[in-house]
Design a protein around this nucleic acid. Structure first.
Lengths: 113, 113
DNA sequence: CAATCATTTCGACCTACATCGAAACGATAC
DNA sequence: GTATCGTTTCGATGTAGGTCGAAATGATTG
């Protein structure tokens, strides 16, 4: 039960939802997400670690970058039920659409400097 | 988006999840829930107002009691997706089962005094 | 109408959380 | 190997949330 409430809590922050919706497009590194959200790098890293601990995302190193992506199915219990739900929510959200556009245009080589 | 995160947050507390699972059995008044959870009456009232504000439960007066029950379909956006999910979660949870038993045995006339 | 009873609101307390900047870490590049 | 760059961890700060007891509310009952 505690595990379930932790999962819901990880979804109870606007910036973490924005991260999940961005990752629906493609894997992203920390600085790309930071650039879109306009938060401190350390804050974004914290958000990602929370989403990783609950099982929504996984990370993988690629050179000097750490890429985060959505956990692909079969994902852990609860997550496999919630992930599809999140994917179909907020289809017309203004912020989500603006973030999507930024993700499309962002280039890690340019902004991480 | 804010509305969605508020909904997830209302699900991020163990006692509120317990309340929702109890209400799957039948409508309950505040003092019945208080008796099962072992919390202060004011705390339970607060939890219920949170669940009411997000749309998971509705209340109705019956004499001196206020009965709370799960919002029946069609429920508000998001809720109509989440409610069925919650109903199929935690089928074998120990606490949920113990609560269910207490709900079966509880009598509002006896305990609310 | 006065008293009782279930519930809600209020005020206070403590804990948990989001955020930042600085420092630590790890790997890459010169 | 030293410097640089992306990321993580740490410490501090302000805010939000869960809890309680007491006071307020609202309806029922005598």
């Amino acid at each position: 039960m505690r595990e379930l409430t932790r999962i819901f809590q990880s979804l109870s922050d606007v910036n973490r939802i924005r991260i999940l919706k961005m990752l629906e497009q493609r894997p992203l590194c920390v600085c790309e997400i930071t650039s879109v959200l306009g938060l401190a790098t350390s804050t974004v890293s914290k958000h990602l670690s929370i989403l990783r601990d609950t099982g929504f995302v996984v990370d993988s190193k690629e050179g000097k970058w750490v890429n985060y992506r959505l956990t692909d199915s079969p994902s852990p219990p609860y997550i496999n039920k919630l992930m599809p739900l999140i994917k179909e929510l907020l289809p017309d959200d203004k912020v989500v659409r603006e973030d999507a556009k930024k993700v499309r245009d962002v280039d890690r080589e340019t902004i991480c400097a």
